[in-house]
Amino acid sequence: MSIHVAVIGCGGMGRSHLNGYKADPRAHIVGVADQSEEAARKAATDYNVPFYTTDINALLDRPGLQAVSVVTPNHTHIDVTPKVAARGIHALCEKPLALSVEDARRMIDAASRGKAILAVGHVLRFAPPIAEVHRMARSGELGRVVNFYVLRMGTASAFLALSWGRERRTLGGLVRTLNCHEIDVLRWIAGEITHVRAEMAHLMVEGIDYEDVAWMAFTFEGGALGLIGQNLVHYLGNHYYEIMGTEATVRFRTSGPITVAGKDRKATERPTSDRVAVHEQIRCFLDSVEAGRVVAPLADGVEGLKGLAIIDAAYRSAETGMKERVVW
């Protein structure tokens, strides 16, 4: 079955989606769009795509178009994705789904009215180490998850390079644009988060108007506790996870081997595959288009909304200094 697809947004992540479609023989890329005509033209040339435009409606008018990746600046998701859904075209929207829970709900409603799939690009579900830890949790190998710890640290260079990456109104803030990944991973592995306590500050990075350091403590439905540390002030960079269960502890990154220790406290390394997470996500999106529903482990719009509700609670906590309940 050939699935006619298109990509809106031809920057670095848009090209990752194009690579994913090129890697799947079911996908026939019929067009690309970008606000920059040069970027759209170059993507069309590089990927041998027959049509490019700066007009989203012109792209959506392409005959037989079935599915679209929305890979545009964060603040534009609410404008672009409902236009896709209104045509009955299935959408894979990059994370964060929106900049507010209210906008996410509008996007979900638009997809429902258009009888279209709405999926969210929580791509770390497809990272081989994370997929393996999810399997371990579901199989009982970890036992009951009781604690987790995540560090994600680096610099602001990627955001400063984006025309829309310097302001909260367009990016959404550091936690909303990056930690939506970690929060989705932890919900997927450990269950729902009920409360958040957060501290955030803008301490060092010039040229941005949002937090560059954040710490968030989470309480889960089952009683587990966890912590995420995130910043843009770490010149060496670091990104890793530790999850502790009653039967085993695991330490891992988004690629490479997993370190596992059981009750004997002997650490062993387990290799993981070298599959490309974005390609696996695109494959699952195409599976979903064929099935007419979002196929696991792809995240749907409701999953994206729940993550945003947790992030909203974190921002509220940073303002009030209080532990905040998650509401969606």
Rank of each mutant, 00 (worst) to 15 (best):
G64Q: 05
S112V: 15
L59M: 05
K115V: 13
Q66K: 12
Y47A: 02
A91I: 14
R113L: 14
E38C: 07
G114N: 03
T81W: 05
T72L: 10
A137L: 12
R105T: 15
A127L: 08
I78W: 01
A40N: 01
R106W: 03
I29P: 00
K83I: 07
P63D: 13
A85P: 01
V68G: 03
R105D: 14
H75Y: 15
D109F: 06
A98S: 13
P63A: 10
P50W: 10
A86S: 15
D61G: 02
H122S: 13
E38R: 12
S100Q: 10
D103W: 06
M107K: 04
E94A: 11
G114L: 13
I78E: 11
G88V: 09
A40D: 00
I78G: 03
E38N: 12
R138E: 15
G88R: 10
T53I: 08
G31T: 09
A137G: 08
A85K: 01
C93A: 14
R62D: 01
R113D: 13
I89M: 11
G140Q: 12
V70G: 04
A127S: 14
Y52M: 08
M107G: 02
A44R: 01
S139C: 08
L124M: 12
K83Q: 14
E141C: 08
G121A: 12
V80T: 07
A131H: 04
L99E: 04
R62S: 10
V133E: 06
L97D: 01
D61E: 11
G143H: 09
M107T: 07
D46N: 09
A116N: 09
H134I: 15
H122R: 12
I117M: 11
